[in-house]
Amino acid sequence: MKKLTTIRTIYLISIINIFITLFVSSLIISLRGYQQEIIVFFENDSAFLISLFLMFIILYPIIFFVLYLITFTIQILIKDGPAEI
């Protein structure tokens, strides 16, 4: 049963992570720094799409490992120990 939970956790994280990374990436590339203010400015052109793709591939593995670490820690706290693969 534990085996199943871990594998399901991993693919569920990776599916959820697609949406989280898309949101974070589009937010980061839309930022226009102006002194202390931050302006979010969404566009819909080829430059925006290519930078969204680049930011996505950079952030996806990072956010994945962060989410996995959080889930892993929660599993340890809730259960007796981490689930095994």
Binding site: I28, S30, R32, G33, I39, A47, S51
Partner: peptide
Amino acid sequence: YYSNKNGL
């Protein structure tokens, strides 16, 4: 403005 998009 500083643009992360153009920088990337």
